[in-house]
């Protein structure tokens, strides 16, 4: 996969390295900005409220007393 990407990048070694760096930074940004905040409430250390069945039914607490850890 990484070899395939490298072969399909244009330019000489330096240009390719630079583009790779930009790609890596972009992917990390997308992860931190969108993917991880989405995945994080699915983890167990994120329920701090007492909410009874309502919260658990919706996955992440939302109703009477939704919440986090």
């Amino acid at each position: 996969m990484y070899g395939w990407i490298w072969r399909h990048l244009p330019g000489n070694v330096y240009v390719r390295a630079l583009i790779s760096l930009v790609l890596v930074v972009g992917v990390v940004f997308l992860l931190f900005q969108y993917v991880f905040p989405w995945a994080e409430p699915l983890m167990p250390f994120n329920d701090v409220t007492v909410d009874g069945a309502a919260g658990r039914a919706t996955g992440i607490a939302a109703t009477v007393a939704g919440g986090t850890a």
């Binding site: 409430p41 994120n46 701090v48 409220t49 992440i60 607490a61 939302a62 007393a65 939704g66 919440g67 986090t68």
Partner: peptide, 14 residues
């Protein structure tokens, strides 16, 4: 409120 997005900024009042 005690939503997940609120608790990211501080404490949440029920």
């Amino acid at each position: 409120n005690t939503r997940a997005t609120t608790l990211r900024k501080g404490l949440g009042h029920y």
